[in-house]
Nucleic acid binder design. Structure first.
Lengths: 151, 151
DNA sequence: GTAATTGCAAATACTTTGCCACGTA
DNA sequence: TACGTGGCAAAGTATTTGCAATTAC
C-alpha cells in the first residue's frame, strides 16, 4: 500500500471527509461551506474572520456574516475551534518576574483558574530559541474543558 | 530568617515593588495605577478591561479609558501582557482529528507558524484530567517572540 | 414543499482617540 | 510650572442579529 500521497490529493481527501462530516451533522452541502473548508486547509494556521472573508477563495464569493454563521455552526459541531480564552474581550495579566502560570478554563461556565504544576514546556522553549533564532521568547499554555460543576 | 509571610504582607511588598518599578519607568504614582495593580494582584487570573473597570476597587473610581491607557503603558514597560495571538480579532482553526499543532508567533510582524515538535504537555493534560475531573480536556500552546527577520 | 442558508443592513460590544481639565513631580 | 494623567464623549473596528430572499434536500 502506497503511503506516499501528494499534498493535493491528501487535501482533496480531507476536504471530502470534512464535507461528509458536515453533511452527517446536518449541515447542507453549500458552496460557501466547501470554500471555507478549503481555505482553512490551505492556510496551515489559525485565521480571523476578516482573513477568511478576504481570502481569494471567499472574497466576492460570500458575505462576512455568512462566514461568521458557518464558523458558529462548525464550532457547534466540533469541527472548528475558536482560539484563546476570550469572550470577545481581551485578557490582561500582570507580569511578576519569576512567576509563570498556566491556566485551566471551563468552556461552559468560563471559570479561569491557575494550574498548580510545573510547566512542562521550558525544554521545548529552549529548543525553539536555539533552532529558530527567536528572541525574547515566552509562551502561553491554557487547558480547556468542562469543569465538574458543569458536567 | 522567617520564610512564612502572610499573604497580605506578601501582597503589600509586591505592590510596593510594582509601584516602584513603574516610578522607575517614568510613570507617575497615581491612585488609579495603584488600585489597578492591587486589583491584578488580588485576582490570580487574567482580567478583561471590563472586569477590571467593574471590580470593586475601580468602579466609581476611574474611567475605563484611563484603565485602558494604564494597561497600554504597563504593556509598553513590560509589566503587563495581553494574552492570546489576536490583534483585536478572534482566530479560528479547523480541527482535524489526530492533528494538533502549537504555534510560534512573532510579536513584531505577527507571523504565525506551526511548531514542528512533539507537544510536551500531554502528560500534564492527563494529570489534570485525573486530578480535577474536567471532561473533554484539550489545550492550546503558543510561543511568542521576535523572529530573526524582525530582530 | 420545507427548512436551512444567505445577503444586506442595522444593532451591539469592545477598543481606541481627541480634547481639555487636573494632579504629580 | 511642565508634562504626564484623568474624565467624558465620540469615533473606529469587530461581532452578532433581523428579516426577506434564496437554495439544498
Amino acid at each position: 500500500m502506497c503511503i506516499i500521497v501528494s499534498h493535493k490529493l491528501m487535501k482533496q481527501i480531507t476536504i471530502n471527509e470534512c464535507v461528509e462530516h458536515c453533511r452527517a451533522s446536518g449541515l447542507r452541502r453549500t458552496k460557501a461551506l466547501k470554500e471555507l473548508l478549503i481555505t482553512f486547509l490551505e492556510s496551515k494556521r489559525p485565521m480571523t474572520l476578516n482573513e477568511l472573508a478576504d481570502s481569494p477563495r471567499m472574497v466576492d464569493q460570500c458575505d462576512k456574516a455568512t462566514i461568521f454563521r458557518l464558523l458558529r455552526r462548525l464550532i457547534e459541531h466540533g469541527m472548528v475551534r475558536r482560539l484563546g480564552l476570550h469572550e470577545r474581550a481581551a485578557y490582561f495579566t500582570l507580569l511578576i518576574p519569576g512567576s509563570h502560570h498556566d491556566y485551566l478554563i471551563c468552556t461552559r461556565c468560563g471559570t479561569i483558574e491557575q494550574v498548580n504544576a510545573p510547566c512542562p514546556v521550558h525544554a521545548l522553549e529552549n529548543e525553539i530559541r536555539e533552532k529558530t533564532g527567536f528572541r525574547d521568547l515566552y509562551h502561553e499554555l491554557e487547558f480547556f474543558g468542562i469543569c465538574p460543576s458543569c458536567c
